[in-house]
Design a protein around this nucleic acid. Structure first.
Lengths: 160, 160
DNA sequence: TATTGTTATACTCTATAACTATA
DNA sequence: TATAGTTATAGAGTATAACAATA
């Protein structure tokens, strides 16, 4: 159990790291939106995916996912195949152009991050990545559990 | 110096924690936008501020800062005073309503985070906060230094 | 009847550029 | 001439709701 001051500082830091995200986005090729880069990276990491699963992995609504996937498909980076097991569903996979784009993105990220994070050890970076993943899990579990701390806090704080 | 795989994972995690930020934003009162909450928290933490300093702290353009501050001022949470030392400048401070709003926001954040982060120790949370702050510093220093890794990576990766 | 995915609409956040006022 | 701040405009990302097709 942590102190209230820490919670407020966490909220501030989460807002602030958005600037880092925007900086990384500026490294991308002109027609590759940050959203496209994430979609492609997810498909590469997890293999053939359904829309709903991709939306879950990105923690955004499926309607938004659909737009991002349409964009990436129209640019020839992603392919949508019918799912033989369920004709409502579509399976996503990387095209050769998509794989090529990901190699380019990875090269840019690596060059930039190797420069900015010169004084970071593997351990420190690994710790940060691990804690970020854990934070997401804690929030995801919270949404899924019946207690629903996130949803209830709004009303309860007003009442109290 | 860390491995390329870690850099890619960091980029993915930074994208993913945006979902946590959105979740926190949903806790806010209806007319308090996430941006307002951040602006008020910054003024509370750092005391009386100039626009340019606030923009720097939030790592966003001053034009955006100006809009957020106007919104918060129109809602009576923030006050803009003339700066006696420089009449181009304006000094920002919290109003009593702004302080009240921040207390409410803090209560909601604390309740929600105490629920979601039950199994986090003070140490783990402190480590995460510290590493996030360090990450921002590393990126900020990188932008400020003459090497400009972030800006150059785009062109260099293409050429190489 | 429920679920998968798409589309239409509206809202928030951000950056660039043009502008005003002051240093 | 340079700097502090504002405003107009455009673009990206997201959520909600209504819809089509299939389970």
């Amino acid at each position: 159990m942590a102190a209230q001051e820490q919670y407020e500082e966490l909220a501030r830091q989460l807002s602030a790291v958005a600037a880092v995200r925007r900086d990384l986005g500026r490294l991308l090729p002109p027609d590759c939106s940050p959203a496209s880069a994430i979609v492609l990276a997810m498909v590469q990491k997890h293999g053939e995916l359904r829309m709903s699963r991709l939306a879950e992995l990105m923690a955004i609504d499926m309607s938004v996912t659909s737009r991002h996937v349409t964009y990436a498909t129209e640019h020839g980076w992603l392919e949508r195949h019918p799912d033989p097991a369920d004709r409502r569903s579509r399976l996503l996979s990387l095209s050769p152009d998509g794989e090529e784009l990901l190699r380019e993105v990875s090269a840019r990220y690596t060059q930039a991050l190797a420069g900015c994070l010169q004084d970071w050890s593997d351990d420190d970076l690994g710790t940060l990545i691990g804690l970020l993943a854990r934070l997401r899990t804690s929030f995801g579990d919270c949404r899924a559990r019946p207690h629903q701390h996130l949803a209830h806090a709004a009303g309860a704080a007003v009442a109290g």
